[in-house]
Design a binder for these strands. Structure first.
Lengths: 171, 171
DNA sequence: GTCTATATAATGATAGAC
DNA sequence: GTCTATCATTATATAGAC
C-alpha cells in the first residue's frame, strides 16, 4: 500500500508477501475491504498510543510536530484518505479515529498555551492545533511528492515558535 | 475520479460516460497514464488561470484562501497525490505545477505583507504562504472525510487575520 | 475516427476435499 | 486452517477492417 498505492493491494499480492495462497486472505478477511479496515484499525491504535506517549512527554508540542511531519505517516494518511473517499465504512472509521486523536492533542496543547500565558482570545487552542498539524501534514505530503520550496524556512519558524511556547510553559 | 477514486477510472468506464467504445480511449491516449496526465495538465492550466485571476483581484489573500479551501479542489488534489505516489511521470508533473503556483502566490503575498508593514524578520512570506495554504488544504480535505472539529473557529480566525492584513495593505 | 475481434493478464470470491 | 480447482468479471492494450 505504501509503495504502490491502495489499488495495487490485491489478495494475490498480499498472499505472495506472506508466502501463502490468495484464498487464505479471503479466508481470514473475506473481502478486501475487511482487510483494509483491519489495517486501518491496527494502525490507528498504534498511532493513538504513539501520540499518547508524545503528548505525555516533557515537550509535547515538539513531539507532536515531529510526529505529524513524519513522511511515512503522510503516505499512509493519503492512501487511506483516497480510499475513504469512496468507501463509506472506511471514511466513518477514519473520522472517528481522527476526532479521538484531536481531542487528545487539544488537551495537551491547551495546557501548553495556558502555561505560556496565551488566552482563548489571543488564539483558541483548537485553532493553534489546526494550524500546527495542518502545516505539518502538508509539509510531509509535499515532501513525498518532491515539492520542497519553503519547507526549511517553515520548519525553522514553527520549531522556534514551539520552543518559545514550551520554554514559556516551563517557566 | 472524483466520485469513485482514481482506481475506478478504467477505459471501459470512461468510454461508457462518453457513449463510446473502450478502444477509442486507447486510440486517443494509448495508455491510461497518458489519459491521467492529460487530465492533470488541463486541470493544472485551468487552476493556474484561476489563481492568476484571484491573486490579481483587490483582495488577493481573501481570494487565495477561498480558492484553497474549496473541497472540490481537495478531492482532486488527493486523488492525484495518491496516484503520483507510485507513478513517476505524474509526480514530476504535479511538482512542477505546484512550484509554478507557489511562485505566483508568493509574489502576491509578499506584496500584501509588505503593504501591511510586516517584515521578513516578523514572518517570511514563504512561511505565511505555507501556513495559509496548508491550513486551507487540510480543512478542505477533512471536510470531505467528515472531520469538522475546529473548522469553524479556524476559518473565522484566518479570515479575520486576512481581512486585517488586507485592510492594512489598502491603508 | 470508429468499429469488431481478440490477446493476455489480473481481479475478488466461492466450493469442496483433506 | 490450508489446499486444489474454478467462476465470472474486469483490466489494458493491439490488430485490422471499413
Amino acid at each position: 500500500m505504501l509503495e504502490r498505492g491502495y489499488a495495487a493491494v490485491s489478495s494475490r499480492r498480499v498472499a505472495g508477501e506472506a508466502d501463502l495462497k490468495p484464498q487464505l486472505v479471503h479466508y481470514y478477511f473475506r473481502t478486501m475491504d475487511d482487510l483494509f479496515l483491519a489495517v486501518l484499525r491496527r494502525r490507528a491504535e498504534e498511532s493513538l498510543e504513539r501520540y499518547g506517549r508524545a503528548l505525555a512527554s516533557d515537550r509535547p508540542l515538539r513531539a507532536l510536530w515531529e510526529l505529524t511531519t513524519d513522511p511515512r505517516g503522510a503516505v499512509f494518511t493519503m492512501e487511506f484518505a483516497a480510499l475513504a473517499n469512496h468507501r463509506k465504512a472506511i471514511r466513518a472509521e477514519i473520522a472517528a479515529y481522527a476526532e479521538r486523536v484531536r481531542r487528545m492533542q487539544l488537551d495537551a496543547l491547551a495546557r501548553v498555551l495556558d502555561g505560556a500565558g496565551i488566552s482563548e482570545d489571543d488564539c483558541p487552542p483548537v485553532v493553534a492545533l489546526q494550524a500546527m498539524t495542518g502545516i505539518a501534514q502538508v509539509i510531509a505530503l509535499e515532501d513525498t511528492l518532491g515539492i520542497t520550496t519553503g519547507h526549511d524556512e517553515t520548519r525553522a519558524f514553527v520549531e522556534r515558535l514551539v520552543d518559545q511556547l514550551e520554554d514559556g510553559a516551563a517557566a
